[in-house]
Design a protein around this nucleic acid. Sequence first.
DNA 1: TGAACAATTTGATCAGGATCAAATTTCCGG
DNA 2: CCGGAAATTTGATCCTGATCAAATTGTTCA
Lengths: 250, 250
Amino acid sequence: MAKAKIVANTRGPVIRARDPWAASGKMRQLLSEEERARLAVLASIARFNKDEDVYHEGRRADAVFNIITGVVKAYRIAPDGSEHITAFLFPGDVFGLSEEGKYTNAAKAITPVAAYRFPVSALRSRLAKDADLEFHVICKLIHELRETQRHALLLARRGALSRVAMFLQLLENLQAGRGERTVEIYLPMKRSDIGEYLGMSLEAVSRAFRALTSRGIIKSRDRRHLKITDRNTFDEIAGDTANTSQTVRA
Amino acid sequence: MAKAKIVANTRGPVIRARDPWAASGKMRQLLSEEERARLAVLASIARFNKDEDVYHEGRRADAVFNIITGVVKAYRIAPDGSEHITAFLFPGDVFGLSEEGKYTNAAKAITPVAAYRFPVSALRSRLAKDADLEFHVICKLIHELRETQRHALLLARRGALSRVAMFLQLLENLQAGRGERTVEIYLPMKRSDIGEYLGMSLEAVSRAFRALTSRGIIKSRDRRHLKITDRNTFDEIAGDTANTSQTVRA
DNA sequence: TGAACAATTTGATCAGGATCAAATTTCCGG
DNA sequence: CCGGAAATTTGATCCTGATCAAATTGTTCA
């Protein structure tokens, strides 16, 4: 388990929300200022170094995290030792929801990370008492569900270029949504991480980048910064199969 | 849009829940009898023939469905005309949650289907007033999120056998969870549907089945019924990378 | 019951990636 | 600023699954 330095309850954590309805184009906060305040009292701040574990599988899940700065990867180790990445988590993202007191995956900071830490028990009883807050959480979950389905959609896509392009699209949306209008896309993760997320080899990822570059579709400043130079072809390759579905079991 | 025969409010719909915490082994109902009763008054019953649309993309999302019997596939049509299946929906499953008044995917019955139909407006105001019920919905959503992430995991898996095996595992869990302890796995969907769900060609699906059969790992009675004859090798091939992660953005 | 069509299986070819190897570049600690 | 380790790129070969075709089997309905 991470030996995170818990920095005590300072002022209220500002749970900055990405637009939960991004697809609709409107920039809306998930939680109101007041709602955030209601949760604020529960949190403390934790910091993690690059490559430090936030928590790992099987660990008792006693807290939920909300990233302030940095990037985290959520992953699982397969019995054969290989690892699979289920998600990249960016500022604003919440993670660590557990099922029955155990984390079912591991999380590791891939850059220095600061995050709010919510004890799960407190959170639960708080939610139970606040219907309004709860409703927003539901909206959030539905949104997340959609994102995950998008990931599945991405994985179903054959063709390395398609996958990588769609991945870049995803990153771009994520960053644009948070107001980082730098035109440039930032890739905090390693090629091998991308490969695992996309279900392909790191070499294939590398080649896909080169292919996109040589075709003049993207242009990279260094290994972690690039911009899209040919929007049309890019979107075409990414397939742009827009949305996903919403389904729940009762 | 489906011209579903709405069969009016009969008695209360029994929202039969699959175990929301299946992984923990305990068989728990998502909603209590009483909670179900609270939702019951909102629903009517709709029936669909095999191959009939339940709803389709872009349609105003005025209702949520809860399957009583039959199987539904949720899918999207890509701009290039190809379709991708995002989920198979079985009895007990709820679907049709919309984002902003529009369905973002299509749903079609692949067998005759009966389902409860909940007008979305009524549902929403009901939920807003019932914190307890809402909490369970959250649990449900988290569960669904987990399932979807499992789907993503499945898609990331390379190797046709792995994918198909994992798919069968998924079906088995689903059916076992509902108490159908027939040992036999039932496949209500076409090979091409499976292929789309798994992101591979229908021929590859067919070959994977044959491969598993000739290796003595599964044995099929007919095209829609099979059982696993070699559990060990099966699990090994399926990779059994158990669980997934839980992540939400705030 | 058979014609017509849908679904599935099987075959053969081919391309995209995986994999193994090696050369470069980047990153860090000292 | 240097040396070593890690990350990335590049190369070459091989294999899996996509694709195109055709043969079977199943299903539906007159």
